[in-house]
Design a protein around this nucleic acid. Structure first.
Length: 261
DNA sequence: ATGCCCTATGATATAGGA
């Protein structure tokens, strides 16, 4: 079974590229982030025409997450346990479902904007709620392969940004953010590391300054999974070709192949 | 080569992204 995570930066603006990618990569389950559309506005027609059903959680504007699947989705959950609000709203940044016996969550973790900002504290609180949600999942589904995939907006190590010197006093690399990743690992999850292509580990390149062409990227789209999941992994890679050309998202998909029994 | 920011919105500027 092929799974993937992809921050598409607006599913409406990206729908043609998304359908093309589904047809070429042939994934069975895809976690999407940053839909930037409401559940009502989600482009179900072209997604279904490509052979997928979608479970979505979006309220328009920014954020929004979905799971596309051609192997079914059950036990769908929207939002985190004890999820904090920002600016008076519980934002749609998490959706979970069980697909072909694998439980998967699509996560769009808050950006944080700058250390000390309200949004940064919100980001750290959001990760606490994610930790609570994962702990609940582990108790509820002790036998299932579990994967928490998406845009974490944290670079796990200094090697996961193109130049750590450019990130002094920046979000995505602070000790507190990385401690949130350590907390996830302490629940018993490990990271599935994608193969490095073109010598770059990155999954995101800013649209500005020709960043993609200069290799100015960040690895922030991550896969954390339990042992039942990681023991099934046969391959994982970043599809950086999907970042090329006109009309690309600023993130590339991360693909994980599983050998299901 | 892949080429120098993009997207959504009470839109003709602004906020957010990371």
């Amino acid at each position: 079974m092929r799974m993937a995570t992809w921050n598409v930066n607006s599913v409406g603006a990206r729908i043609d590229r998304v359908v093309e990618w589904l047809e070429s990569a042939q994934p069975d389950v895809v976690a999407l982030q940053e839909l930037k559309c409401t559940d009502e506005a989600f482009p179900h027609v072209p997604i279904q025409a490509a052979g997928y059903e979608a479970v979505t959680h979006g309220t328009g504007r920014w954020n929004g997450v979905a799971i596309l699947t051609r192997v079914g989705a059950t036990d769908v959950v929207r939002g985190l346990v004890g999820q904090p609000e920002f600016d008076g709203a519980a934002e749609p940044r998490a959706i979970g479902a069980t697909c072909n016996g694998v439980r998967v969550w699509s996560l769009y973790c808050p950006n944080g904007r700058e250390p000390g900002h309200d949004h940064y504290n919100y980001k750290l609180d959001w990760f606490k709620a994610l930790n609570t949600t994962i702990a609940g999942d582990l108790a509820q589904y002790p036998e299932l392969p579990l994967a928490y995939i998406g845009d974490y907006n944290i670079a796990p190590t200094d090697a996961d940004v193109w130049d750590i010197e450019k990130f002094v006093d920046s979000t995505h690399v602070t000790a507190a953010e990385r401690a949130a990743l350590t907390d996830i690992q302490e629940l018993g999850l490990t990271e599935v590391m994608p193969r490095s292509l073109k010598g770059e580990p990155y999954t995101f390149w800013d649209y500005r300054n020709g960043s993609f062409h200069r290799g100015w990227g960040m690895r922030i789209d991550l896969v954390y999974a339990n042992q039942a999941f990681t023991s099934l992994v046969s391959d994982a890679y970043v599809d950086r070709d999907a970042r090329k050309g006109k009309g690309a998202s600023d993130h590339a998909p991360v693909v994980v192949d599983l050998d299901l029994p």
